[in-house]
Write a protein that binds this DNA or RNA. Structure first.
Lengths: 135, 135
DNA sequence: CTGTGTGCAAAGCTTTTGCACTACT
DNA sequence: AGTAGTGCAAAAGCTTTGCACACAG
């Protein structure tokens, strides 16, 4: 768990008002490199004793992602994961277990961007390697 | 719209019992290369006059994907798209408009598979290029 | 006192589940 | 009759919305 002052500073640097709820949520997310779904974050925050609603966790995680503090990972149709690692990298997703792992971008360099549709700009490239257990 | 006999044959070839509902759904999905969410398929099938429930559309599309008739595309956290093109290819997703476009694999070749976790086998690699409108 | 920003209960979606029904054996 | 497979209403679960409240100007 990071200390409050550090988190405050980091949130403010991104133009995020560091309210109690946001600091609690950020402190859980950034404690270590990890992939968490909203309800896992809710459980962690509550375990810390903070009083936060489900809706606030969802809204706050979306806010953090928009501001670039964390990264949204879309691999599972049923829930969104948030990744505390914002460096460019890819993911290995085990469809059997739900386990999500990072792959460094250098291990799997993506080629140059293809031609994009008129009037659009690239926001990012997500690479997901789907694996299953070798039963 | 493809003719019934052809669809029947194709479903049977994949070990899918060609019931009335399944043929209707397949016929909409395979009519042309496209990306459809479940409720779009429901609307199309109903427009054709077929009597199919929402649940059946969901279950049937999942079945088709499992059998390899169509491909699941996970790009939007809020809903799953199904792609009638099962050849290896990637996607460009416009986060502003929701538009989904194909990119041929040859235009964007992915490098060799990195080291996978013990006991797992690759099932596929999904590449999604996220773009937004150049406001 | 007014306006902007925040948090959350309730509503809204998509998707899944469990059961009734069908169609074969 | 028994059994495997199919379709769907209802339930479940994640996420968004709309509103009450807090806080700054």
């Amino acid at each position: 768990m990071l200390n409050r002052a550090e988190i405050n500073h980091r949130l403010q640097g991104l133009g995020i008002n560091p309210t109690q709820q946001r600091v609690s949520i950020a402190s859980c997310m950034l404690a270590q490199p990890q992939h968490l779904a909203a309800d896992q974050v809710l459980a962690m925050v509550r375990a810390e004793g903070a009083n936060v609603s489900k809706a606030t966790v969802y809204n706050t995680l979306a806010l953090f992602a928009r501001k670039g503090l964390i990264r949204e990972v879309i691999v599972d149709p049923s829930r969104v994961f948030y990744d505390s690692n914002t460096d460019p990298h890819h993911h290995i997703y085990n469809v059997d277990t739900g386990a999500l792992e990072d792959v460094d971008a250098s291990e799997f360099p993506v080629p140059e961007m293809p031609h994009l549709p008129e009037g659009t700009v690239a926001e990012g490239v997500d690479v997901v390697i789907r694996v299953r257990n070798n039963a």
